[in-house]
Simulated assay, not measured.
Amino acid sequence: MIVDDVEQRSVAWQRSRFGNFTGSEVHNLMKSGRKKYEAWSETAKSYMYKVAAERLFNPDFLNDDDVFDDYLHQTNFTSKAMQFGIEQEQYARETYIKLNNDVEVFEVASCKHDTIPHFAASPDGIVRGADLKCLEIKCPNIATHMMYVDKIHDGASLKEVKPEYYWQTMAEMACTGATETDFVSYSPWLLNPIHIVTIPRNDEDVALLEERVKLANAFVEEIINKSKS
């Protein structure tokens, strides 16, 4: 696990992830096209074109904090609900720690895969224990939180209900070497504000994910080479 020593959501963190396939978006690579011979869905292609463009970004703009921050503000949308979730994340982490006998949770930035280039994930914490464990926190609205309580109980149900979150947890385990991830839904308005589900590492799905990222990297390199010809 290669960890960038920068604060999550900072300009430096955004720069470190630029041009990478990341845990929060890697689910876009997991669907093939509608026809049997199509390796990629249109959503996957759109994501790969975006990554290709990021790798060709003007370095003068990329390395200028003010210019790059301006670009991020123009291209990244943060709703009130998303901002609320970001603000509640620390409280969710503190609640999780108390419920788990004051277990140590370390905040990390972008964790790069040991062997696959341009592949990184940013778990919301690393839990110290006998085995490495990731923490992934979501702070949805109260109705969505209760739906998670009702329907998400293990890896299979997470994959069915929220496949994008399932593949995010697999990406985090692929990039960190963790054996499991605690998926946490937190709603501060409720008497019992936290729902914790342990998602074990699925080696077959991790291998599938890693293979898709390798193929996506090859696709991106092909696009980059075309742009230079």
Rank of each mutant, 00 (worst) to 15 (best):
H118P: 04
L132E: 03
G125L: 04
D114E: 11
E87L: 14
V108P: 01
H113C: 02
H118R: 04
G129V: 02
V108N: 02
E89D: 12
F119K: 03
T115V: 07
C111Y: 05
V127A: 03
A121H: 00
R93P: 02
A130Q: 07
E107M: 10
I126D: 02
T115H: 04
E87R: 15
G129N: 06
K138F: 10
P123K: 02
L99S: 14
D114F: 02
C139D: 07
C134T: 15
D102V: 10
N101D: 14
I137Q: 07
Y91P: 01
G125C: 08
Y91V: 09
C111H: 00
I116C: 04
E136D: 15
L135Q: 00
R128I: 09
D131F: 07
G125W: 03
S122H: 00
I86G: 07
A130F: 11
E89S: 14
I97T: 09
E104W: 04
K138E: 07
D102Q: 13
F119D: 00
I137L: 09
G125M: 06
G129D: 06
E89R: 15
C134K: 01
A120T: 05
A120F: 01
P140A: 09
I86V: 15
E104S: 09
E89L: 12
K98C: 05
Q90H: 15
N101V: 06
S122K: 02
V103A: 06
L135M: 08
N101Y: 11
L99Q: 13
S110E: 07
E104Q: 13
E107D: 14
V103N: 08
E104V: 12
N100K: 14
Y96N: 08
P117N: 07
N100Y: 04
T95Y: 12
T115A: 07
H113A: 04
F106C: 10
H113P: 03
E87M: 15
Y91S: 13
A120W: 00
A130L: 11
L99V: 03
V108K: 08
I86E: 13
P117T: 01
K138A: 09
F119C: 02
V108S: 11
E104I: 13
I86K: 14
E94N: 12
Q90E: 15
K98Y: 11
E89H: 11
